[in-house]
Computed example of a mutant assay.
Amino acid sequence: MIKNFLQELRTQRWDDHRFYHHSRINQSLHFVSALSFLFAYVMLFFDPVVSALVGWLVSMTSRQAGHFFFEPKGYDHVNQATHEHKEDIKVGYNLQRKVVLMAIWALSPMVLYFDPTLFGLFKPWVTMGDFTRQVAKIWLAVGVGGLLFRTIHLFFIRDVETGLVWMTKIVTDPFHDLKLYHKAPLFLMKGELIDPGLEKHVKHA
């Protein structure tokens, strides 16, 4: 069972890399995201508010900017797949789902405007510092909620193992991305916009 779990984890990681990380800019942004996520992981034990702020304002924005603005959306000749097909088969959050998630994140502070107590969970904020800390707590809940929602969703549309593997992948992505994309900024500075190694790796996979 553990062997199958680890194999599925490797498969999900490989598919994620070969389908959705062709751009060196995207890879470089994932490197930045990984570093900041690891910092956020550490801060989670000391100050969850700082962890949430860094996780969303730096880690998630840099990560998703790479996908939205820099990853090619045309036909994928390396994998012989259309962009639409890749979006359909994506295990986690495809671009459409990411739009919804990011919209929830961006609009969530407005809840405090209409109800400063958030249904009695918070004391009404007085200073901007109070407001920021309360927003960070909401963002932390959005992050955890988004992870659990898709995991449980996968339980029903795929199977329990797929959901648990995906959740494991997401939580450990910063470590894996750091290893995988740490050279991407160097290649980018050399003028390399698309990873040429993907085609070779896909052909030999």
Rank of each mutant, 00 (worst) to 15 (best):
I89T: 12
F131E: 09
F37K: 03
Y93W: 02
F149G: 06
H153L: 01
K137M: 14
M43F: 14
R133A: 13
L178Q: 03
S59W: 02
P72I: 02
S33Y: 07
W139V: 04
L178C: 10
W14M: 14
I2W: 13
P116E: 03
Y93L: 02
G66I: 08
E87F: 08
G197P: 12
F175M: 02
A136Q: 12
A103S: 04
G55Y: 08
Y181K: 00
L112V: 06
M60Y: 00
M128V: 04
S51M: 08
L9P: 15
V126R: 09
S33A: 15
H85F: 02
T168F: 07
L6T: 15
R63A: 13
L9H: 12
I194N: 02
W14P: 15
K190G: 11
F39I: 13
R24D: 03
H83N: 05
Y93S: 11
V144P: 08
E87L: 01
L193Y: 01
K179Y: 13
H22T: 13
Y93M: 05
L9I: 13
A52I: 07
Q134L: 04
Q7L: 14
S23E: 03
F19N: 04
G191W: 02
F114A: 08
D177V: 15
M1Y: 06
K3W: 02
Y41M: 05
R150V: 03
D88M: 02
Q12H: 14
W14K: 15
G197F: 11
S59I: 06
L148H: 08
L53H: 00
S108C: 10
W14L: 15
F155Y: 01
V160S: 10
L178Y: 07
R97E: 11
P174V: 12
R24Y: 14
W139N: 05
N94K: 09
A184P: 06
Y20R: 09
M110C: 13
K200H: 06
E71C: 10
A52Y: 05
K183G: 00
Q7M: 12
I157C: 13
I194P: 00
N79A: 15
R97W: 02
A34M: 04
T168Y: 04
T172N: 03
F70H: 06
P196K: 06
V49Q: 00
I157Q: 11
D195Y: 10
A205S: 15
H22N: 14
H17N: 09
L107G: 04
K179A: 11
I157E: 08
T117W: 01
L118V: 01
F70K: 09
D159V: 06
L121T: 13
V142F: 05
